[in-house]
Design a protein around this nucleic acid. Structure first.
Length: 464
RNA sequence: GCUCCGAUAGUGUAGCACGGCCAAUCAUGCAGGACUCUCACUCCUGCGACUCGGGUUCGAAUCCCGAUCGGAGCACCA
């Protein structure tokens, strides 16, 4: 089985369906998983050099290491070879119609004047095409199907066109000017690679019908195919690779792994586990129905994985200083995890702590509140915010039904959280710096992956 | 315009090939409650669907026809 993307951008959450479902079948039936780059368009969907490695990287991350990697732009001669056979057999012809003209003829079920050119003459045209004898857009090789076919989508389709823009890969460069179109390239590759089963999007349903003509002419058997419907994500609007690229270039996003983007790199950076993505995609199945899904399900899956592993820390966003009188400086020891016995953090507390502004707004003079894992206080002044130490006992906090809020030491480390909904800035415990690249839970905030540490900690928001 | 697909709770999904075991599965979501030194976790309880209309049949989510709605293809894009 294969997954055949055009590397004109990084893999997205949408791509993972193809990667995961195909590789899952391969695992189940001990087949072979091929990653094939369909990179034969140097112009409209121009490949992006970095994206080749991104696909490989992301496949591996998703637990779908390809057994073989094929790059179509390395294999152009193979396609030429088959094209020649088709021309010789009278099953393909060089068409000089302008696309508009051809479309009109095709819609009227009329053959174009070049359709009945002899194979001999077509071979001459073809050779001339390959040698650069025709300008761009002046000639195209078409596969003969049935010009009278009731479905206009299946009437004589294009197989090769002339494109003088060089390929971005150095190995290829300007080596070719005649490039295969998807239906042709894919058809040949699927046979050459011994593909037995194809699972792909519904939009390629007609491809199968078109490609079947090629298989018939060449005497090959078409693989077994299944198609899935369109997937939309509630959280992400419409996005196109080219649109995203522009937005990134204009600085609207920080890069291809900006947490607001649906790319695999972005969700990985946010601490989504590959197993969660796999489960999510496999549960989705391969129905032909068009679906619109919510990431909540993916997050729920991820939470199950991350919840037992993530250490807990205090992070106070939008901090306000609270001065506590009557308490000696001390050290608080909140547990790293509420149920897994992993020991405690150590936080040195002076006579001041930081608390969230949104918690402060719910307080008034006289409010009693428990600073989690520290002590109970009673607010004596709102501005500046001051409180009196009451006692340490959690029991009295419970008895008086005090609100329990979290806090951070005044000498904590600055933390910046990047999330799909924007940026949060605040102060966290120093110990967070030991969690680089790990997913932690900021209590009463949510799960985050610690992306970098230094003078400031940068965390990427995972989910609640 | 022509052609091709599809339709089960808010969202996904199982069931449909071979009609009865479906008063319809599971997950997520939502609501209420218990637990908890987090708004996380866990545990209870509850909510909620076979698109519509015909037909075949003793019996239809399942088979047939039609309608409606949704999606896709008809590129010198993938």
């Amino acid at each position: 089985m294969r997954f055949a993307p055009n590397p004109n951008g990084p893999p997205t959450l949408g791509s993972t369906r193809g990667i995961i479902v195909n590789s899952e079948y391969v695992k189940k039936y001990e087949g072979k998983f091929i990653l094939r780059f369909d990179d034969t368009d140097t112009q409209t969907k121009r490949p992006m050099l970095e994206a080749y490695d991104w696909y490989i990287e992301d496949c591996n991350w998703l637990g779908a290491k390809p057994d073989e990697i094929i790059i179509a732009s390395d294999r152009i001669p193979l396609y030429y070879e088959q094209a020649r056979k088709l021309i010789e057999g009278g099953n393909a012809y060089v068409c000089f119609c302008e696309s508009e003209t051809f479309k009109k003829l095709k819609d009227a079920k009329e053959a174009c004047p070049h359709r009945d050119t002899s194979p001999q003459e077509n071979l001459e045209h073809w050779d001339k095409m390959l040698l650069g004898g025709y300008p761009e857009k002046s000639a195209v090789l078409r596969i003969k199907t049935d010009i009278m076919h009731k479905d206009p989508a299946l009437r004589d389709f294009g197989a090769f066109r002339i494109l003088k823009m060089p390929h971005p890969r150095q190995e290829v460069g300007d080596k070719y000017i005649v490039w295969p179109l998807l239906d042709f390239e894919g058809a040949i590759e699927d046979h050459l690679l011994g593909t037995t089963h194809i699972i792909r999007g519904k939009d390629l349903m007609d491809s199968e019908k078109r490609q079947t003509y090629i298989y018939k002419y060449l005497g090959w058997d078409y693989p077994i195919t299944t198609h899935w419907g369109r997937v939309k994500m509630h959280e992400f609007g419409k996005f196109s690779t080219s649109g995203l690229r522009r937005a990134i270039e204009e600085g609207e996003y920080d890069g291809w792994d900006d947490p607001r983007l649906p790319t695999v790199r972005a969700i990985r950076r946010r601490g989504i586990q590959p197993e969660a993505v796999r489960k999510f995609m496999i549960d989705m199945g391969v129905g032909e129905t068009d679906i619109s899904i919510s990431l909540d399900t993916l997050y729920a899956e991820n939470r199950k994985l991350v919840e037992p592993k993530a250490n807990r820390y205090f992070f106070v966003w939008d901090p306000v200083e609270l001065e506590v009188t009557g308490a000696d400086p001390c050290t608080a020891n909140p547990p790293l995890h509420p149920t897994e016995n992993r020991g405690c953090r150590e936080i040195d507390v002076s006579t001041k702590v930081l608390v969230c502004r949104e918690d402060v707004e719910k307080l008034t003079e006289g409010s009693k509140v428990r600073l989690k894992d520290l002590y109970n206080v009673e607010v004596t002044s709102m501005e500046p915010l001051q409180a009196n130490y009451l006692n340490d006992a959690i029991e009295s906090a419970k008895k008086e039904k005090m609100k329990i809020i979290h806090w951070a030491p005044v000498d904590g480390v600055p933390v910046k959280v990047l999330s799909p909904d924007g940026e949060f800035k605040g102060i966290g415990e120093k110990q967070i710096t030991a969690e680089l690249d790990k997913v932690v839970q900021f209590e009463r905030f949510g799960f985050c992956r610690i992306d970098s540490v230094g003078k400031e900690v940068v965390a990427y928001y995972t989910h609640k």
